[in-house]
Nucleic acid binder design. Structure first.
Lengths: 221, 221
DNA sequence: GAAGTGAATTCTGAATTCATTATTCAGTCA
DNA sequence: TGACTGAATAATGAATTCAGAATTCACTTC
């Protein structure tokens, strides 16, 4: 049986589908930074008309993934070291706020779930299971944001996370950084359990800034 | 003589013009929260076709000023007290970050300018000149953001500021709040001059949270 | 042979048209 | 009289068409 409740039939807007596709293509490097994006080839690739495609380009431009130059089309934004600094600086304070709010507002059930995931994170590190580690890591950050129950924060964070994601794809986790990252996560879970908002905020912010440092260190090699 | 350097002729995209108009209309309450936005009347009002109008609606939706419901048009988002809390919480940490970065990165010239504006702010308060006060207030916040030299921060802040603006329009400044706000600004300028990043961050964040409190207090009356 | 000019092509910007979905309202039946 | 059905109407979603700007490239001229 279909477990899905019937509900409204899903008719995702074409423009949304296209933005998601394009975003993924940018993350995966199919569309390279600095590359000019021509509308016609994309419409042919996706099998859609220019109207929804152009709407999608507008959305991605507002997310900062590409730049629209009047009468001259779109260009995938280059990701400079400076831009990474910028994005991570902002993301760090947003995650800090998420930690602070979560420490205040999270339900006990939320906290238990986050602690459980943190233990699983430790396990995936012990097992040297990178895919699982990444998945759980993402899930924890998402859970903390949700526990903060501030939709505006979640949305703002999401927009910037798209841009950080591009760098993370390339980032390689060194053994040392990995070890420290797990410890940081454990400290964060501890601060949440203790409902120490200030400490949690500081830890979350530091965690993200450390991540930036490791990405930059990896890039230098 | 025309002091403008010739440069490229300015051809602002129609969709951008329309978004600005619509945004202003929302700020001024011409389009009221909860109101359904129909495309046809707007195209007639602006004298444009639906294509650029729809692009503009997409942009405003991404800014959170209205909500697009598939096949059912757009609705101006209601501004609940909860949403104000959300937006100001995020804005506060962003302004905090701006203060922190500005304290570190601002040029001496920037600092002198901000201090000068702060003195003018005090003067406008003494003169009880509200329009001037608001103008200088805005200029100071803008200058601090610029001094932080983080475009991503500026852009992110701008998007949220649009939403806060809607509330500020209605907000009435009490005499007491006004006095305290000026003092806060002077403290911020002092922290900047002292290049005390941590203190500046804390002051900036607190300043915005106090502003929220005064808005909420005014709304309760 | 190199630089400059102008027509042809290609691309983006905007308007219009076509298709699909939602809403309204008259009519029917219980 | 009230609720349901279904056609008519009006809205949005997407494709196509038209207009204007930028690029390309061949040709001319020095």
């Amino acid at each position: 049986m279909n477990s899905k409740i019937p509900g409204p039939i899903e008719r995702t807007a074409l423009a949304v589908e296209i933005s998601n596709h394009l975003r993924q293509m940018i993350f995966e490097g199919v569309l390279e930074p600095g590359e000019k994006v021509r509308e016609k080839p994309l419409t042919e690739k996706f099998g859609v008309s220019r109207t929804p495609l152009r709407e999608a380009l507008k959305v991605l431009a507002s997310e900062g993934l590409l730049e629209l130059i009047p009468n001259r089309g779109a260009v995938i934004t280059r990701q400079s070291a400076d831009e990474l600094d910028e994005v991570f600086s902002v993301l760090a304070v947003l995650e800090g706020l998420a930690g602070e709010l979560a420490a205040k507002a999270a339900s006990d059930k939320d906290l238990a779930r986050i602690s459980k995931m943190t233990r699983e994170l430790r396990q995936s590190f012990e097992d040297a299971d990178r895919p699982t580690y990444f998945r759980i890591n993402q899930a924890i950050h998402k859970a903390i944001l949700e526990a903060a129950s501030n939709d505006t924060l979640t949305r703002t964070h999401e927009l910037l996370a798209y841009r950080a994601q591009r760098a993370r794809y390339q980032a390689n986790l060194t053994a040392e950084r990995w070890r420290v990252a797990v410890e940081e996560h454990e400290a964060i879970a501890g601060a949440l359990e203790a409902r120490d908002a200030a400490r949690c905020a500081a830890l979350m912010r530091a965690h993200l800034l450390n991540k930036l440092a490791s990405i930059k260190a990896a890039a230098k090699v």
